[in-house]
Simulated scan of single mutants.
Amino acid sequence: MKTIIKYIIILLIAFATWTSFAQNDKGYRFEGNYVVFTFSKYDYEEFTKDNSDDYVKFEDLNIDNVVVAGEFNNWSKYDWKMKKVNDNTYELRKHINDFRDEFTWEFKFIVNNEYWAEPSELDPNIKLSNIKRSNLNVYNLKMDTNTAEPSTNGNVSFRLRGYDHAQKVIVAGSFNRWNEHDLRMYKIENGWELKLDIKPGEYEYKFIVDGNWIVDPSNPSKVLNEFGHYNSLINVGKYVTFLLKGYNDANRVILAGSFNDWNEHDIKMEKADNNYWKLRLPLPAGKHYYKFIIDGNWILDPDNPIKEYDGKGNINSVFMVK
Rank of each mutant, 00 (worst) to 15 (best):
M1H: 13
M1Y: 13
K2D: 11
I4K: 14
K6E: 14
K6N: 13
I9Q: 11
I9V: 15
I9H: 08
I10K: 12
L11I: 13
A14E: 06
A16Y: 07
A16V: 03
T17D: 09
T19Q: 15
A22N: 13
N24A: 12
D25P: 01
D25Y: 07
G27P: 05
R29D: 00
R29H: 13
V35Q: 01
V35P: 03
V36H: 04
F37C: 05
T38K: 10
D43W: 15
E46R: 13
F47T: 00
K49E: 14
D50R: 13
N51L: 15
S52W: 06
S52I: 05
Y55E: 11
V56E: 05
N65F: 08
G70N: 05
E71T: 10
S76D: 10
D79E: 12
K83G: 00
K84H: 08
V85E: 14
R93H: 13
R93I: 04
K94I: 12
I96L: 15
I96E: 03
D98F: 03
D98I: 00
F103Q: 14
F103W: 13
T104H: 06
W105D: 01
K108H: 07
F109W: 09
N113Q: 15
E114A: 12
E114C: 12
W116T: 12
E121F: 12
L122V: 05
N125V: 03
K127W: 04
L128Q: 11
R133E: 09
S134I: 13
S134K: 15
N137R: 12
Y139S: 01
K142Q: 08
D144K: 04
N146P: 04
T147Q: 13
E149T: 15
S151W: 04
T152R: 08
F158I: 05
F158A: 03
R159F: 00
R161W: 05
G162S: 06
G162W: 08
V171N: 01
V171S: 02
A172N: 08
G173Q: 01
S174D: 03
F175E: 01
F175Q: 02
N176F: 05
N176C: 14
E180Y: 10
E180D: 11
R184W: 04
M185A: 08
Y186F: 09
I188R: 06
E189M: 11
E189C: 02
G191Q: 06
G191V: 05
L194D: 02
E202H: 03
E204T: 15
E204Q: 14
K206Y: 08
V209R: 02
D210V: 08
G211A: 03
N212P: 03
D216A: 07
D216Y: 06
S221Q: 14
V223W: 01
Y230E: 04
L233C: 08
I234A: 02
I234S: 02
V236Q: 00
G237R: 03
K238E: 15
K238A: 14
K245I: 07
Y247K: 02
R252C: 09
R252P: 01
L255D: 04
G257H: 01
E264M: 10
K268G: 09
M269P: 05
A272N: 14
A272M: 06
Y276G: 00
Y276H: 13
K278T: 13
L279Q: 03
L279T: 10
R280W: 02
A285N: 06
G286M: 01
G286F: 02
H288S: 09
H288D: 09
K291C: 11
F292D: 00
N297T: 15
W298F: 12
I299A: 10
E308D: 10
D310A: 07
D310S: 09
G313Q: 05
N314S: 08
